[in-house]
């Protein structure tokens, strides 16, 4: 009897960037932040739905969430949004075939679309970092 060994990487293939490029980590983070935002968004629909029962219901809901745990959670969702939005703009452009260059005869040493568009990825990450720093300052220090 001959046995084949199933060797799919499974979820580790999504999350583990390993020795692959930076893009692979950007991909994993985009996916994770997307799921995080979706989970928050579904809850958010119901939490904001408390407005139906008038201002008192809204205030009691806000009081329930007014503690450090939810505050940090809210900040994480905010960061996830910033990353997902900036990286998302990059992905929309790339997936519409922009920023990947034109095909041509490959000559050694080979270049590829991922290398050519690397500056855009770095630029997107720099913009995200600046927004995150500002968001942190605004969220924890400037807003009273």
């Amino acid at each position: 009897m001959q046995h084949r060994y199933r060797n799919n990487l499974g979820l580790w293939g999504w999350l583990g960037g390993g020795r692959y490029g930076f893009d692979r980590y950007a991909y994993a983070l985009h996916r994770l932040t997307g799921l995080g935002i979706l989970a928050y968004f579904l809850m958010h629909i119901f939490v904001t739905g408390t407005r139906l029962n008038g201002p008192e219901a809204w205030e009691s809901a806000m009081n329930f969430f007014d503690n450090p745990l939810f505050r940090v959670g809210e900040f994480l969702v905010y960061l996830a949004f910033l990353y997902h939005a900036v990286n998302g703009i990059r992905l929309v452009l790339v997936e519409l075939g922009l920023l990947v260059g034109k095909p041509g005869l490959p000559s050694y040493p080979y270049s590829n679309s991922v290398i050519r568009h690397r500056p855009v990825l770095v630029g997107a990450m720099v913009i995200t970092a600046v927004l995150v720093l500002f968001a942190g300052a605004d969220f924890f220090f400037l807003t009273k």
Binding site: Y78, F81, A85, G88, I89, V92, E95, L96, A135, D138, F139, L142, T143
Partner: peptide, 24 residues
């Protein structure tokens, strides 16, 4: 999916701006 992403960018940008860019 792509078109909604572009729409969300503006709509959620507005929402997040109001919610989190209060100081600005």
């Amino acid at each position: 999916h792509i078109l909604s992403a572009v729409a969300i960018l503006f709509l959620l940008g507005l929402h997040m701006g109001i919610m989190h860019m209060g100081t600005v």
